[in-house]
C-alpha cells in the first residue's frame, strides 16, 4: 500500500473528514494549527463532504463512486491534500483506485491519490519534519489504526512523539489487533465489533496510559463509546491535538 513519489509542498488543501465535520471540530482545528506551525498555507474547499469510504466498504460501489466523483471536483488542482485520518487517506490512494479499475476516470482518481496524505505522514515524509517542539506530559498508548498498515503513518507518529518532552509511549499486548470499528462493520457485525473493541480496550488499559492516541478518530470514537458505556476511564486524543497542545505548552 506504500505510495511513493507523492506530491508535497507547503500550499495545501485540507480534507477535514466527515467525522471531524460532524463530531470532532477540535481535531480539524488542531490540524490547521499544526500545518500552519510548519509553514503551510491551508485552504479548505467548502464543498467537501466525505471520502466515500462507508459505501465502498459496505459493498455499494456505485454509491461510493458518486461521492468520490464529487470529491474529485472539490479537490481540483495540484496541491497536496492533507487528511487527519489514515483511513480516509488510504481510501484516496488505495480504495478508490480499486473501485475505479474499470471506470473511465481512473486516472483522475489515481492523481488525487498521489497527492493525498495522512497528516503525520505528510509532516515527516512530505515535508521532512523530523522532530516536534514543545511539551506534553503523558503516558501514551498509541493505537495504530489499521489503514496505517503498509503506510508510513505509524512510524511518523512514533518519530514525532519521541521528540516531544514529557511523552512516554507505552506498549501493550496484541498491538496488531484491530479495534473492531471497520466502518459499517460496526453495525453489520455488532457483537464481533464490540468484542474486538473490548479486548483492545482491555489490552491498552492494562498498560496504564494517561491517554490513547491515534491518527484516526473513527477508531477512537468506537473505543471511547464502548469504554464510556462500560464506565471505563478512557481518554482519547487525535495525534493532531497532541502535536498542537505540545506547541502551545512550549
Amino acid at each position: 500500500m506504500l505510495v511513493t513519489d507523492r506530491i508535497a509542498g507547503r500550499s495545501v488543501q485540507l480534507m477535514a473528514t466527515c467525522l471531524c465535520d460532524a463530531f470532532y471540530d477540535d481535531v480539524a482545528r488542531a490540524t490547521v494549527e499544526v500545518l500552519e506551525h510548519v509553514g503551510c498555507e491551508v485552504e479548505f474547499p467548502e464543498d467537501q463532504t466525505c471520502c466515500g469510504q462507508p459505501a465502498f466498504n459496505g459493498g455499494d460501489w456505485p454509491a461510493s463512486r458518486k461521492v468520490v466523483r464529487h470529491t474529485l471536483k472539490v479537490f481540483e488542482g495540484e496541491k497536496p491534500v492533507i487528511v487527519p485520518s489514515g483511513s480516509c487517506a488510504a481510501m484516496a490512494f488505495h480504495g478508490s483506485p480499486l473501485q475505479f479499475e474499470r471506470e473511465p476516470d481512473l486516472d483522475q482518481v489515481k492523481a488525487l491519490g498521489k497527492r493525498t496524505w495522512e497528516l503525520t505522514d505528510f509532516l515527516v515524509n512530505g515535508l521532512g519534519v523530523d522532530s516536534w517542539t514543545g511539551r506534553y506530559h503523558a503516558r501514551i498508548a498509541l493505537h495504530h489504526s489499521c489503514h496505517g498498515r503498509g503506510t508510513r503513518t505509524g512510524e511518523a507518529m512514533e518519530r514525532l512523539l519521541k521528540t516531544i518532552e514529557g511523552v512516554e509511549v507505552v506498549s501493550f499486548s496484541e498491538p496488531e489487533q484491530c479495534c473492531g470499528f471497520g466502518g459499517t462493520f460496526a453495525v453489520t457485525f455488532p457483537h464481533i465489533s464490540k468484542s474486538m473493541g473490548q479486548l483492545k480496550i482491555k489490552n491498552m488499559v492494562s498498560a496504564d496510559p494517561d491517554v490513547i492516541v491515534s491518527a484516526d478518530m473513527s477508531c477512537l470514537m468506537h473505543q471511547a463509546g464502548l469504554a464510556e458505556r462500560e464506565g471505563i476511564d478512557f481518554r482519547v486524543r487525535h495525534i493532531a491535538q497532541v502535536l498542537r497542545n505540545a506547541i502551545s505548552d512550549s
Binding site: 463532504t49 466515500g52 462507508p54 459505501a55 459496505g58 454509491a63 458518486k66
Partner: peptide, 14 residues
C-alpha cells in the same frame, strides 16, 4: 448492512 443511497446523495450535494 445500512443502505447507502441516501447517504451518497447527501454526500455529493454540498
Amino acid at each position: 448492512s445500512p443502505p447507502m443511497g441516501a447517504w451518497a446523495t447527501l454526500a455529493s450535494s454540498p
